[in-house]
Simulated assay, not measured.
Amino acid sequence: MDVLPQPLLATTFGTGLVLREALDAGASEILLCLGGSATTDGGSGILRALGVRPLDADGEPVPDGGEGLARVASLDLAGLHPRARAARWRLAVDVTNPLVGPRGAARVFGPQKGASDVDVDYLDAGLERWAGVLADATGVDVRELPGAGAAGGVAGGLHAVLGAALEPGAALVADAVGLANAVADAALVLTGEGSFDSQSVGGKVADQVAAVAGRAPARPPVVVVAGQVLLPASRAAEAGITAAFSLAGGPATLAELVVHTPTRLADVAENVTRLVLR
Rank of each mutant, 00 (worst) to 15 (best):
L8C: 00
P82F: 05
F109K: 09
G110V: 06
V120Y: 03
T253S: 15
N97V: 12
L69S: 01
G126M: 07
V212K: 00
S37N: 05
R83P: 02
A266V: 15
A243D: 14
V205H: 02
R20A: 14
L179Y: 09
A170P: 05
A73G: 13
R48F: 07
L172Y: 00
S195P: 02
R129L: 04
G249V: 00
A164V: 04
L8M: 13
A165M: 09
A115Q: 02
E60K: 15
A27Y: 04
D136E: 15
R83K: 11
A226H: 04
L179P: 01
E144M: 15
I241E: 06
A244E: 03
E67W: 09
E29P: 07
L247M: 06
A244Q: 05
D124C: 08
L23D: 06
L188F: 04
G101T: 03
K113C: 11
G250E: 14
N97Q: 12
A70C: 10
V93M: 06
A184G: 03
A49M: 04
P221D: 12
V118C: 06
A236H: 00
V95S: 11
T263I: 12
D121S: 14
A151R: 02
G51N: 03
V209W: 00
F109T: 01
T253L: 11
G79F: 09
V276G: 01
Q6N: 13
A92K: 06
P63R: 09
V52Y: 02
L17F: 09
R219Q: 14
A87C: 11
A22C: 08
V177F: 07
A233Y: 08
A150N: 02
Q208R: 14
V120Q: 01
C33F: 10
I30R: 05
L247V: 04
D64A: 12
A186I: 12
E60T: 15
V177H: 07
P111A: 13
D136P: 05
R278E: 13
L9S: 10
D64S: 12
V212W: 07
V100I: 15
G139E: 02
T11R: 03
A84I: 01
R48G: 05
E193G: 01
A255G: 03
T273K: 04
V189N: 07
G250V: 04
C33L: 13
A266G: 08
A25N: 10
R274L: 15
S74A: 15
E60I: 09
L190S: 04
D94C: 09
A106M: 08
R107E: 10
Y122R: 14
W89S: 10
S200N: 00
L275M: 09
S37F: 07
D141Q: 11
L230N: 10
L127F: 11
Q6H: 12
A115I: 03
L32N: 01
L31K: 06
P262F: 00
R219F: 12
R274M: 10
A174D: 13
Q6I: 01
A86P: 01
F245W: 15
A92C: 08
V272L: 07
D41Y: 08
V161L: 02
G250S: 07
D94I: 08
V189D: 00
R278C: 09
R215C: 11
D117A: 15
P61A: 12
L34T: 06
A57S: 13
L134N: 00
A252K: 01
R90S: 12
V229R: 02
V140K: 07
L17Y: 01
D58T: 12
Q112M: 04
V95W: 05
A269T: 06
G214F: 06
L47H: 03
G249L: 06
L47F: 05
D41H: 08
A182K: 10
E29Y: 02
